[in-house]
Structures are given as structure tokens and as C-alpha cells.
Amino acid sequence: MNPAFEPTRHLDDNAAPPQAGPMLRRAGRWLRALAAVAALAALALALGAAMSASLADAEDALACAALALIALHFSGRAQRRVIAEHGGLDGSTGLYNRRGLVIAGDEAVARGKARPASLVVLDLSDLVEVPAIYGREIGHRVVKRVVERVQALAGPNGLAARTGKAQFTVMLPGTDLDKAVERVHHVLGRPGRIEFEAGHTEIILVPVVQVEALAAGQESVADLLGRMERLVASHIAQEQRRRAWLKRERERHSRPSPLGA
């Protein structure tokens, strides 16, 4: 098996969430709180600068905004380090694996409380066949391209994960269902696709896309992901049955050509 297509093994979904290092967890919370305070300060200073045309207030607003971004960046790094220490990252792509997505997703839901959140599942079954058809090097590069598109879909605030051999999942905290669908169309196009070009080689992967909203307090990230995977599997099975029926119909209506003299 090509290691580029072998995800980190799935850990027991029913296992208790790991207890991360208390210092890193506290650091993450402090940094997120600092980012929130700095963002509010930047907004207030920006409003003040707009009303008074004060250059000093404008500069202070920019400084607070920069501080908020830096704090968010380092809080994310602290969270990834905690999850990595407990086997929550996919070794071949650096994305979260299934366990890591569940841990980080549940934490995001807890922080957001009543805010909406959505999950996007991308099934790329054709991805497994790429190295066999085009070679190992092209296979690695296609995987890299897929990861780039998945990360673009997640954006700076989302969570990107590889939840199966050819399955990727993105969680979008603070995003309702309509906005999540709009984001998928914006990043992947309509219909959704991931394109790769290398010289004379052009590969187009068309994923099966499932988008669902997470109802806070009613369904966990793991439960929603499992339900979405069942919907994707049902869609794929239905499409396979449809193609098999069309093939049989073509064969049934075909007639042999008459033999020549």
C-alpha cells in the first residue's frame, strides 16, 4: 500500500477523550481570551479613529488586530500539539485524523456554545486509483493538491481532517448550513471538483459531498460524522446501482452488426 494513501489508524471512537497537558490547555484558553479582548479593543479603537480621524487610534487599532491574530495562531498551535501527543494527527498529511477532529471539534462547539457549526464530508474514491494509473510520484502530488483544497475549504477558523483512506472532513465553526454550502461552491466550484495538472497530465477528481449542520447540545461531532458517512455510503451505492442498470440497458438494446459478404 502506498503510504501516501494510508491514513493514521482509527482509534476507538468510544474511548474517553484524552486529558491533555494542563499547561498547554490553560495556555490555549488564555491565548483565545487574549485574542477576543484584543479584537474587541481593535474594533473600539477603529470606531474611535473613524469618528475623530485620529492617526494614533488607527495605529493602536491595527496593533490590537495584529495581537489578536498572533494570539489565535499560537492558541491553534498549542491545541494541535496537545492533540498530536495523543495520536490525533494523520501521519501522511498533517491534518487531523478522525480522533483529532472529534476532540478539536467538541472543544470548538463547547467554546461556541449556541453558535452554529457545520460539517463537510468529501469522499474521493477515485483518489485510491491515482498511483496505480499515473505512478507513485503523481499520486503524492495529487494528495498534496487535495490537502491544499481541503485546507482552503476550512479556512483560518475551520478544522481540516483526513477521516478515511480517501475521505476528508472539514468542520466550520460559526457557519450555518447555507453558508457552508456556499463556501463549498466557492472553493470547489459547482459541481465540486479538484483539478491537478502536471505537464500533459490532467486529473479531475469529483468528490461526493455531504454537508450537514451540527445542532449544539443535540448531536456530538462523532455522531454527526457517523451519520454523514452512512449517507455518503448510501449515495455511492445508489449511484453504482444506477450505472449498473444503465450498462445492462445498453447491452440489452445493442445489436450485432451484419457480417460482410
Rank of each mutant, 00 (worst) to 15 (best):
E212I: 04
E6A: 05
L11M: 02
Q238V: 04
L95G: 07
L127R: 00
P207C: 12
R242W: 12
Q218E: 09
R183F: 06
E202N: 07
A237G: 09
R80P: 00
N14Y: 03
A180D: 10
P116K: 12
R149N: 05
E249P: 00
H140Q: 13
D57T: 07
T8Y: 04
A66I: 06
R136C: 03
A65S: 14
F168C: 00
A108I: 05
I194K: 03
V181Y: 06
L159N: 05
A49L: 10
R162F: 10
G76A: 12
S75E: 14
D223K: 03
A110L: 15
W30S: 08
R32M: 09
L55Q: 12
L188Q: 09
H235E: 11
V232N: 04
H73E: 11
A237F: 07
E85D: 15
P17G: 02
D176K: 09
M23W: 10
M1I: 06
A71P: 04
V232A: 14
L224H: 00
A38D: 15
R32D: 07
V208N: 11
A27H: 03
V120W: 02
R145S: 02
G192W: 00
D13T: 13
I133H: 08
M171Y: 06
A27F: 03
A46H: 13
I138C: 01
G260C: 05
C64I: 02
A132R: 11
D176L: 08
I83Q: 01
A27N: 04
H235I: 13
A35N: 10
A213L: 09
H10N: 02
E239Q: 14
L62K: 02
I133F: 03
E148G: 14
L43D: 13
L11G: 11
A261L: 15
R162V: 04
G164S: 02
L11T: 09
E6V: 04
D57Q: 15
V187F: 05
L153N: 01
Q79E: 15
L225P: 02
L31S: 01
S92G: 08
S220A: 11
E85P: 00
A38C: 13
R98D: 05
A36Y: 04
A222Q: 10
L40N: 11
A132M: 12
R9A: 13
S257G: 05
A44V: 15
A78W: 04
S92N: 11
E6Q: 06
R141P: 00
V130Q: 02
T175S: 14
L259C: 05
P207K: 15
G217L: 05
Q167K: 03
E59D: 06
A237W: 06
A160P: 02
G105A: 09
G76M: 03
L231V: 13
M1F: 10
R230A: 14
R248W: 07
V37M: 08
A213P: 00
S234I: 06
F5Y: 12
L153G: 01
V142P: 03
M23E: 13
A198Q: 10
R243G: 01
E137C: 01
A160Y: 01
P256Y: 09
G139E: 06
Q151L: 08
K113Y: 10
S75V: 08
A16Q: 13
G260S: 15
G158D: 03
